[in-house]
């Protein structure tokens, strides 16, 4: 084969490889279960979408989020500058496997007097009914409030493609919230994850 032809083939092969290297990681449209921690970014710092969630029935959960009464609430009403949302599913094996680690992460925050009142957590059960979310909470003794997203509407609004996904939201002090963190998949090290959240949220 002539060298020029070989070069042409090499260039074509290179372009195909380049396409594969970037394109192969594109996820499917359906919400799937994500295993090892993979894609983390600092969020896009755009305004966080506005949606409503039901005010929890349990007084302890109400008081944790700084809410009262009944009906619905918006994320901005939660009494902390930083909120970490775990989007999970009752049916997701990877969420099940990381449940105890997430509880541990919550406990670490509760033990830190400088963070306890400033970082709150909630979970959103994608495509789960209230019954399924309650069953998940009971099974893993999840200490923070969980909410069902049976219609997937909220998860789609949040750009979630798989579970678990962690989203960090920060109040900008002007009544709106910005997304500062987006992680698809679980985390390996609780301390490292906490340090990441503290750093990217600007708490320190």
């Amino acid at each position: 084969m002539e060298t020029s032809k070989k070069r042409l083939i090499a260039v074509l092969f290179f372009l195909v490889a380049l396409f594969l290297s970037g394109g192969a990681s594109q996820g499917a449209e359906t919400i799937t279960s994500i295993g090892n921690p993979t894609k983390v970014n600092g969020g896009d710092h755009t305004n966080f979408p506005v949606f409503e969630l039901p005010i929890p029935e349990h007084e302890s959960e109400k008081s944790y989020l700084g809410l009262s009464g009944t009906g619905t609430f918006k994320i901005g009403q939660i009494n902390a500058p930083v909120l970490l949302i775990e989007v999970f599913s009752f049916y997701c094996p990877h969420c099940q496997r990381t449940a105890s680690q997430i509880n541990e992460f919550y406990q670490r925050i509760q033990e830190r007097s400088d963070l306890k009142e400033r970082v709150k957590m909630i979970g959103i059960g994608v495509s789960n009914s209230a019954y399924e979310v309650d069953a998940y909470q009971e099974r893993y003794r999840v200490p923070f409030p969980l909410f069902p997203d049976e219609s997937i509407e909220i998860s789609q609004m949040l750009g979630v493609k798989g579970t678990p996904t962690f989203i960090g939201v920060k109040a900008d002090g002007k009544g709106t919230q910005k997304r500062f963190y987006f992680r698809e998949g679980g985390f390996q090290d609780t301390e490292q994850f906490l340090a990441e959240i503290i750093k990217l949220s600007g708490l320190k």
Binding site: V11, F14, A17, G22, A24, G35, N36, T38, G185
Partner: peptide, 24 residues
């Protein structure tokens, strides 16, 4: 260029594997 291409293709496949969690 060929070597780089193979590397890129493999790296891409590995990234896809990691992103979806091994089994997804």
């Amino acid at each position: 260029l060929l070597c780089l291409s193979v590397f890129l293709a493999l790296a891409g496949a590995a990234a896809a594997h990691g992103q979806s969690g091994g089994f997804t």
